[in-house]
Design a protein around this nucleic acid. Sequence first.
DNA 1: ACCGTCCCTGAATCATTGG
DNA 2: TCCAATGATTCAGGGACGG
Lengths: 403, 403
Amino acid sequence: MEVNKIYQGHCIEVLQTFGDNSVDLVYFDPPFFTQKKHSLTNREGSKKYQFDDCWDSLDSYLNLIEECLIESYRVLKNTGSVFLHCDKTASHHIRVILDKVFGVNNFQSEIIWSYKRWSNSKKGLLNAHQNIYFYSKTKSFKFNQYYTDYAPSTNIDQILQERKKTTDGKSVYKKDKNGKVVLGKEKKGVPLSDVWEIPFLNPKAKERVGYPTQKPVLLLKQILKIATDKGDLVIDPFCGSGTSCVAAKILERDFIGIDSSQEAISLANQRLQDMLITDSALLKKGAKSYIEKTEEELHLLKSIGAIPVQRNAGIDGVLKSHFANKPVPVKIQTKSESLDDAIEKLERACKGKEYKLKIVLQTQSNTVSNRLFGLASDVKIIKSSHLLLVELQEQMMNKLIHK
Amino acid sequence: MEVNKIYQGHCIEVLQTFGDNSVDLVYFDPPFFTQKKHSLTNREGSKKYQFDDCWDSLDSYLNLIEECLIESYRVLKNTGSVFLHCDKTASHHIRVILDKVFGVNNFQSEIIWSYKRWSNSKKGLLNAHQNIYFYSKTKSFKFNQYYTDYAPSTNIDQILQERKKTTDGKSVYKKDKNGKVVLGKEKKGVPLSDVWEIPFLNPKAKERVGYPTQKPVLLLKQILKIATDKGDLVIDPFCGSGTSCVAAKILERDFIGIDSSQEAISLANQRLQDMLITDSALLKKGAKSYIEKTEEELHLLKSIGAIPVQRNAGIDGVLKSHFANKPVPVKIQTKSESLDDAIEKLERACKGKEYKLKIVLQTQSNTVSNRLFGLASDVKIIKSSHLLLVELQEQMMNKLIHK
DNA sequence: ACCGTCCCTGAATCATTGG
DNA sequence: TCCAATGATTCAGGGACGG
């Protein structure tokens, strides 16, 4: 059989043409049993891709999955494994099948792909994850240990210090004769956990090709990295728009894609030529880079019932409840700002918008604003409780001194 | 049946004594199916023998779960729901049972409790989550929507603008005839998602009591908050060390715990008793009940640079920096308290201690204190920024009306 | 009870502007 | 020309509504 190609056909029939023990990884991303038709138009609006995820019954769906998994099991090498991607709808039934086909003891992990996404008005909790089941064919499966950064709260410096036991059995940090701490051997980081926070493919991302249920390349790369080496063979029996194939090509793994839809295959082939991958700014810079407020500012905002605003200079928050049917923007005076500066910045940020009330939270005990006199401004000043406290203490101090 | 009590016995037998449609929430945290560990412990030693007596087979384990779920279903009100906490070993089988007993359509969410954990040297991915299945008895289940912060990458100032559809179906921001953007209605925040990152143990509280599978109180509180109201009845048929009972008590829900082990029950009662002892101690000082600080109070305290103090009726926090070489106690006026009440409580709590400054944070716009006149009290009143805001808005409203 | 259609959301990218 | 700030845009997937 030829690798690095996408085959058209029913996945079981195509799989049957492959030999035993020849594949390193099966990435299995079947329809999720949503009983819905999924359709999406591509970016130019020229083509509409859709696939039917409607089934006669749960049993007929599960039968297909089972047969396909049996074939997958057969073609896998002894060091191989399967990653089965599904969502809450049928995950439990599918895992029962996986137990049956691969064996309970070859269950390795339930990977949770978690993401933030635009919300909706559902009663209940917002859906924000999908499940990936990781089963190996045997105990001697291939696994590349992968280390992530330490949690931000971890004191890395401390971890790097060497430790010793004192005579009374306590563990303390070792110090040399000059009293300096001894740095220990290199630590690799924390082993990758089974909860993966990877951004959902945003509607605006160029990586999107218009195929429904498209997965981010990043997710597939992570799977391929931990379960295969360069040159290994990856099979995706429901390849759809071919994300797994793209990831395999990037990481120099061989791949075989299978899909029943000719349209999907053309699309996947197109992607393999273009290799259009956008790297997520969010992931590159980190979610923290968007946060520009200090803890104190956040507490102050929340204590007055405001939602923090991170992406607008001049506005630090918006009150949850409107005033006169309009939102109320809030600006916190910074240490280096005069009250007038703060007011001006807020005014500027509100240009072109009809607010009925704007708030500046005064945090510094400087003189009263000059700007407000004689001006018909709807900016109002409110002193922070902390400022009131500081002013009170100053007053009391003065009294104590004068005694 | 008596509430706020822990019963000893087989969960099914105890459940059978309860009436139909009488319970608001069942928190179901069964023992893990330890069939696999059974053989492991045989090799390693006799330490874990306590677990291996339970189950002959997976089927007998699942039978127990099923019977117990059937009883749980019976006792639940139509607005009630069940939260079933389980471990990956048998979670899929248990969910099949849940589908059977509660109905596929009453599946609401698979909650992922994810946590950071110390790494081990296991081959494969680090286990860092557990699953909680949320099923309701009927469609009209009780659910308290709970809103969280927007993602830092969201431009909230922008999404407050109203939108409209153009003739060609695109969504654009609405503008009035003067070219100004039109501001839309109030936003509450983002609905809580089904992935909950909660630390294994609350780092601040000395929560651990030594029971093997103890769950953090925070996790249980979150469940109770979204699925019950004050005064509702919560049942935990496998209550173990009684975390759910503790959470229920904190949040003023009624609870019934059931466990077969007398040891577990003593432990759970001990935990509840500890809370009671604190209560009675507080009663002597004049407190009414165990009060938990709300998030608002915590933000208020932190915004003025105070450290929250738990479980002291007269003092809610202490300032980080001393005044005149003495600590400064802070009390927040509660909604139902008059300013004088608050002052009196603070004074009483401070009796016998030489503070140079005591602060009451006024949160309600009631009349000025009478008590302070003519009294040489060192209690000082500071208005919360939120109160200042509310007063300002009232003033402005009055002006608008009088025009 | 069951379609199809429309409306509403907000995360995060892309596009444009401004310095 | 480059960078940061911010305005514009997309679309899954709920609910509501109408037939």
